[in-house]
Amino acid sequence: MISDPYKVLGVSSDASEEEITKAYRKLARKYHPDLNHGDEESAKKMTSINTAYEQIRNGNASQGYTKNYQQNTDGRSNGSTSSNDPFGFGFNPFEGFDSFRRGFGFHEGDRQQRSESSNFDQVKSYINAGYYDNALNLLNNMKDRNAEWYYFSAVANLYLGNKITALKYAETAVRMDPDNPEYKRVVNHIQSGGRVYQKQSSDYGRPIVSLNKLCLGILITNMYCMICGRPC
């Protein structure tokens, strides 16, 4: 937690969402490691800018898209998840992960305080029943975000097909509690599919040609505007 996130971004605490985002992007342009040849100082600075920005946005939960988005789609997503079929695909996209889910019930976060763990009990039963959206809603309303919180959020997001979020949260859980084997197992589980694909893909041979070998003419015209014939 940063005590004064507004100060980090250099905006006043009554700045509008738009002003805050503008300030954030300006700082990102200055400090993002990709524009600073991986300079460590700017990477550190960027981390605190990111934290501050996230903190402000999470605090103003009424703003931003995520919140509205979840509310708008609540009816639909609840309806579909109840059939254990989050996207209406007609099959469970995580088939074969059952062992993962079965093992799930045995893991108890006993080391945490009782009150918190009873909250997570509810989350856990939602996840086991396939109500991933409900589990996420419950998690999003929790204030204290400890390693266990990140772990459960990772699992719920994984089942909803939000793999990028799932990986990020699972890695955060491992960072916060490196000794917990279950957290590492989830990170591994999320990454395993990607590794298999990467292996097959590199066996195939990654492309080394430049794109214009395919069909020079059309690709060039594609980059140009339909009307003036100039790139735009």
Binding site: K163, I164, L167, I190, Q191, G193, G194, Y197, Q198, S201
Partner: peptide
């Protein structure tokens, strides 16, 4: 790259 591999695996 890891993230993109994950998405293609899916």
């Amino acid at each position: 790259t890891d993230i993109l591999n994950l998405l293609m695996a899916d």
